[in-house]
Simulated assay, not measured.
Amino acid sequence: MKELEIRSKEALSSLLSTVPLIEIRNLKTALQTQAWNPDFIVEIEVSGKSRFLICTIKANGQPRFVTAAVLQLRDYVIGKEINATPIVIAPYLSPVTRQACREKGVGYLDLLGNAWLSFDGVFIDRQVADKPSSEHRELKSLFKPKSAQILRTMLREPNRAWRVSELSYVAGVSLGLVSNIRTALLDREWGQTTSDGFVLRDPPALLDAWVQVYEPPLGERKKFYTTLHGSALEKAARSAVSENSNGRALFASFSAAQWLAPYARVSSHHFYADSEGLEKLIKALELIPASKGENVVITIPKDEGLLLDTVEAAPGVICTSPAQTYLDLSVAGERAQEAAEHLRQEKLTWS
C-alpha cells in the first residue's frame, strides 16, 4: 500500500500542477483514529481561496469497493466545516465506476490517467482509451465458454435468484466456477445477493462489457449453396431444427434475428449444429458445398454450450437465445450493427 500511496500522491500533484490557478500548500497523511479517515489530505489555494482535497486510495477500483469509499468520503466531508472536495484514487477505474463517482459529485483519478475534478472554477475531465492488461485478461476470463454458460443461464431469467448449487446444476459447470463468477459479478456490481440467492443487478452493463470483448465462436465454419428459397426453404429448415432424434441444429446470427426481432433480410442463412445436426441440414436443405457464392453457412462450434442456449421463437423454430444472437450480430460486420441494436431494444431491455 505504501508504494501505491506514493504513486497516488505523485499522480495527484502532477495533475494539479497542470492548472495555473492552483497552488499546492500542503500534502499530509491523515491522522488515523478508530473512526474512518481518508488516506491523505491536500491543502491547495485556488485564486486566493483555500480548499482541501480529501483523498482515499483503493487498491481495487471495482465498483463494489469504490462505492463504499464514495459514501465514506461524502460522510467525512459533510462533517467538516471547510471547503473540501472528496477524491477517489485507484490503479484503474472502469467507465462505470467513473460515472458513479461523477453522479455522486466525488472526484477521481486513476494511475492510467483518467481524472475528473470540479471545484472553484476548476474543471478537469481526462479519459484515456487504454485498459490495464490485467483488466482485459479478467474480462476475457469472465466470458470464456464455461463461464459464459453461467452468464447465459442467468440472462435467460434475469430476475431469478439462484443458489450456487442450483446454478451449477442448470448451467452444467462446477460449483467452484459458479462461486468465482459470482464474486466477479459482485465486484463489478453486476450482481447482488438477496435472501433468496444471487441475482443479476445490472444485465445491460454485463452485456455491454461482454460485447466489447466478444469474438466469433471457435469451430468449423462450412459454406453451402441451396436452390431452395422462400417458403420451401423455411419449411425445410424448420423441419430440420425441430427434429431432435439425431443431433442438434438451430438458427443463428441473422437467421435467428429474423425470428426473434425481424429487421432486415439478408440473402444468406446461418445455423449452429453438431456433426449429426449438420447432416440433417445438408439433407433437408439439399445443400451443395460452395467455395464462393454460398447462401447457407453452418458453424460447428467447439463450445457445445451454444447449442444448449436456445429459445423456440415459433413452433418448431429453435434459435440461439436473444443474448447470444445479439453477440453474434455484433461481430457480423457493419451491416449487422443495426439489426443487433434493434434486437437489443426488442428483446434485451430490463427494468
Rank of each mutant, 00 (worst) to 15 (best):
E304N: 03
F198G: 04
G172T: 08
V199H: 13
L307N: 00
V106W: 09
F52T: 01
S321A: 06
A273M: 01
A314N: 10
Q34P: 11
E234C: 08
Y326T: 00
V173N: 04
S118P: 02
E157R: 05
A232K: 10
Q212H: 05
V170G: 01
I41V: 12
Y272G: 05
I78D: 07
K144M: 05
G176Y: 12
N114C: 02
Q62V: 02
T18S: 11
T194A: 04
N159Y: 14
S17E: 07
V77D: 08
D208T: 00
T194D: 04
D208N: 04
D328C: 08
E338W: 07
E23A: 03
F224M: 03
L281F: 10
A90G: 04
K131D: 14
S133G: 07
R188Q: 06
R64L: 15
V266F: 10
K49M: 06
D130R: 09
R248G: 00
L12E: 10
Q258V: 02
I57W: 15
G316R: 10
E234L: 13
G107R: 01
T67M: 14
Q99L: 07
T226C: 11
I54V: 03
A237T: 00
P216W: 07
F40C: 01
R51T: 01
Q32T: 07
L53F: 12
L16W: 11
A236L: 12
K140L: 01
V106A: 02
N244P: 02
A209G: 11
Q34S: 13
